[in-house]
Computed example of a mutant assay.
Amino acid sequence: MSQPTITLTGETIGRGRIERLLAEQALLAFEDCDFQQADLSRLNLQDCSFSNCAVAEASFYAANLARTRWRRCRGGHADFEASDLVDARFESCDLNNASWRRAKLASCSYRGCKLTGASFEEAGQLGLSFENCLLIGADLRRMSFRKATLKVLDFSDADLAGCDFRDVVFESGSLRDAHIKDTRFDHADLREADLGGLKLSNAKQFAGATISPRQAAELVRALGLNVA
Rank of each mutant, 00 (worst) to 15 (best):
A103P: 00
L115S: 06
C108W: 09
A188P: 02
I211T: 13
A123L: 03
L200H: 01
H187S: 14
V169S: 13
G112A: 10
E131L: 03
Q125T: 12
L135Q: 07
K151W: 01
C133E: 12
E218R: 01
K151H: 09
G112I: 13
F170R: 00
G173H: 09
V168F: 06
R146C: 13
N97F: 08
C108T: 15
D164G: 08
A138D: 09
F206V: 14
L190G: 02
F185Y: 05
T210I: 09
G137A: 10
L140S: 05
H179W: 09
K204S: 14
E218A: 11
R111F: 12
K204L: 13
D182A: 14
L105I: 07
A118K: 00
K181G: 14
N202W: 06
H187W: 01
T210A: 14
L140M: 11
A203Y: 00
A178E: 08
S107E: 14
D189L: 06
G208P: 04
F130L: 12
A188E: 11
A178K: 05
R111T: 15
L126Y: 01
N97T: 08
A118R: 00
S172D: 15
V168N: 06
L219N: 09
E121I: 09
Q125L: 15
E192W: 02
S201A: 13
A161N: 09
A106N: 13
G208L: 06
L195S: 10
F165K: 02
R214D: 15
C108L: 03
T116E: 15
E171P: 00
R141Y: 07
T183K: 00
A161G: 14
L135A: 07
A217I: 11
G124M: 11
L160G: 05
Y110N: 00
S129I: 00
A193G: 13
A138E: 04
G208I: 11
V152C: 06
K204G: 12
F206E: 06
L105V: 05
G208W: 04
S174K: 02
G137H: 04
D182S: 11
D189E: 10
S156P: 00
W100A: 10
D177Y: 14
K199C: 05
A158R: 00
L134M: 05
H179I: 10
E122F: 09
Q215P: 04
G112S: 11
N97G: 03
N132T: 12
F170G: 05
R142N: 10
H179G: 10
L175K: 04
E171V: 15
G112K: 03
I136Y: 02
S174W: 01
S212R: 01
I180N: 07
L134G: 03
E218F: 03
